[in-house]
Design a protein around this nucleic acid. Sequence first.
DNA 1: CACGGCTCGATTGTCAACAATATCCGGATG
DNA 2: CATCCGGATATTGTTGACAATCGAGCCGTG
Lengths: 203, 203
Amino acid sequence: MTESLREAIVAGRLEPGERLIEERLSTELQTSRGPVREALRQLEHEGLVMSFPYRGAVVVGVSEEEVHEVLIPIRLTLERFSFGKALDLLRDGDFAELGKQVWRMEEAARRADLYRIVEADLRFHDVVLAQAGQPHAVQLWRSIAPRIRAYFLRYGRSRELGLIVEEHRELLTALQTRDPEVVLALLEEHIAVESPVPQIARA
Amino acid sequence: MTESLREAIVAGRLEPGERLIEERLSTELQTSRGPVREALRQLEHEGLVMSFPYRGAVVVGVSEEEVHEVLIPIRLTLERFSFGKALDLLRDGDFAELGKQVWRMEEAARRADLYRIVEADLRFHDVVLAQAGQPHAVQLWRSIAPRIRAYFLRYGRSRELGLIVEEHRELLTALQTRDPEVVLALLEEHIAVESPVPQIARA
DNA sequence: CACGGCTCGATTGTCAACAATATCCGGATG
DNA sequence: CATCCGGATATTGTTGACAATCGAGCCGTG
């Protein structure tokens, strides 16, 4: 139910700046104000909404700059760490799930369905993150992922959709080797391409 | 009110693993279950608590590894970006507030009061972050800061307390020069010392 | 006409009762 | 004796009513 609100924002049906009134939402979503409040808090912590005491909540956008300079670097930190941890913990069922997401991406790429590609893309990463057994990393991942999703959908990258599929296919086979070197190298590159100017000072 | 719950966890009066029952908390805190629920959600998004549907909430700890490999690197990303942004935006009032925090740290260092030092330390950084005008950066900062606080208080660093004060004094004067080079160099070092092994691959 | 205070409508915050769900424990059963 | 089923209990999820607060518009006053 918080899901449908999130979708409305992420998919762009609700514009940044738009007010979210609890009572209106509760009637639209066929529930009472309690659950709506919790949903709004959830979205607030996913950075999709900002709220102020006694003044309500508004939809918030993501600047390209913050995506590249904050969200993507944080994502890299989280994934580097978690993929390394997950390597020895992934089981057959997980690989099956990952394969399923790659397959979904294929299907979606065939139809040029950006929405479903991004969905499967993030789900792929979520599966690995979740298996790494690092509570704070998952928690933070789930906090930033929706914003990245919103950004990808709004400013849909020009990159060939097929490339995304291919990269994940490679990532999956790399994971199956359980070799940190290979996996982290691929991962780094996969995420970095979306972050034009890494601002790490070079000696 | 969520403040007092947070304090109890951060200061270690509530051990990791301990259950948090809404009704009990609501009577202790002289309020009803509604606000308690919201507080628990807040703490969940600060990573101090984990909760599961129909099964309640428990206090969660922070592993040293996640602090060094996840929280501190993320903190670095956030502060590098935000300090740069804030440089041109800090006003006299802000510098006054920063000076006040340095003064508080002095006082606390004199008494070897780790709690108040950490409090003023994080407040110092919050002031700058808040002025940078980057909503996602502040939001994420406020999400990770409490865990860092909990970690510092629990595994109080061995570093000389006086050093912390000195570093902030330098940081403040650097900020007043509004020179990015100087500020970022100091900041990088200040935060890095708490992160023994930066895992950035070096060529 | 500008401005400060006041009232009022809209909206969020709080509360207490009720519904739904999970866990624990005892008893029947193979 | 182990195991599975069922009810009792503890706890969370939901709801509707009430209280507190904010912001806009009105009105009097300088």
